[in-house]
Design a binder for these strands. Structure first.
Lengths: 201, 201
DNA sequence: ACCTGAACACCGTTCAAGT
DNA sequence: ACCTGAACACCGTTCAAGT
């Protein structure tokens, strides 16, 4: 039982949350490669074997981080959309910009999210990704209703849009183009997308 | 000196090449995480400290793999272009398809290539990426000359195209969409691109 | 110049045992 | 149910020493 004096902030029901919290910081500050279960356990104040109860192995913790990443990404996109104008072009740009911002501000996390560690097994991660993918599809469907798009298949076009922003993000994060080009790339992609999907006459 | 009987196939000037070769196989078969310098040394038949002469640390070997990956990618794209028809739409589709094929057939390598391990320092990797990026820009420039594109800035459009295929590849490799959708996604992206960048009248 | 062998500090993972 | 402590096999990295 937890002893009477308030010496230990964790250890009861929130070891898992505490570990994830520490892992999130470590990921941001030192990258996924430097994330060690033993370190995290020490940082949180438990023995090195304690995390095993909550994460059967290291990969399980990384998967949990990726899963949480998709939840946060989805929230960021929905927040951006909530604050955007009603017109489709504005909503498109707001979503793209929010994605890129999230991706560049959480570069190590993004890597983890898309890394094919999601072999057969990590269904949770794929499941969590459905929310932002769905958001993209909804956005496209709205554009069709507004008459801004001729797109027949909202889901497929949504995936291509998703892929485009994700690709821009990974090219920027990988240092393959100068960061100054970022805004221009997003704008070029948005313009091309609007022109490419607009009704023909 | 190498003793007279032909017992050792390596050890002279090609330890580096032998290590890279073994690493390439290991990467494909077990992924980058499972790549161990000690294992590679054992597989090649040298002591565990020998690789240090050629790769100062583990990251240096991973960077060398990524660098070689971009060289191979560039070759694959150029081969595809050499066999394609002259018209821009055909050349565009050939390039996109070749990229996606390379990316899905070398998923673990692709991850390594784009992983932001390329922090300040790994200039070799970024340098090696310039070839395929340049190829994309050339492709766009040809499209402009043929009158198929209105694009003002070939380099920027080329980067967006690059980002789109890379994004599709990572979404497929990450298992976020069913593989059956792949061909349709590439075709949708190609159509949108052609429509988005075509002259206005 | 290139490689060996021992040593160091650190891992992830397992398991009997504690509370 | 949750955590501890010892143990195991394995790392990357370093360095004196060999050839």
């Amino acid at each position: 039982m937890p002893d009477a004096n308030g010496e230990r902030p964790y250890h009861h029901g929130n070891l898992r949350a505490a570990l994830l919290d520490a892992a999130q910081r470590g990921l941001r500050e030192r990258g996924a490669d430097q994330l060690s279960l033993r370190d995290l356990a020490k940082e949180v104040g438990v023995s090195h074997a304690a995390p095993r109860r909550h994460f059967p192995d290291r990969q399980a913790l990384l998967d949990a981080l990726a899963e949480a990443g998709f939840v946060h990404l989805d929230a960021a996109l929905r927040t951006a959309l909530a604050g955007a104008d009603e017109g489709f072009p504005a909503r498109l740009r707001a979503t793209m910009t929010a994605y890129i911002r999230f991706a560049t501000e959480n570069a190590a996390l993004l890597e983890l999210m898309y890394t094919s560690k999601h072999r057969p097994g990590a269904t949770q991660v794929v499941k969590a990704a459905e929310a932002p993918f769905g958001l993209m599809a909804e956005l496209i469907a709205q554009g069709e209703e507004q008459g801004a798009l001729d797109a027949a298949d909202a889901e497929r076009i949504g995936i291509v849009l998703f892929a485009t922003v994700q690709g821009i993000a990974s090219i920027i994060n990988g240092n393959f183009v100068e960061p100054e080009l970022l805004d221009g790339l997003v704008e070029t992609a948005a313009e091309q997308f609007l022109r490419g999907a607009r009704p023909l006459t």
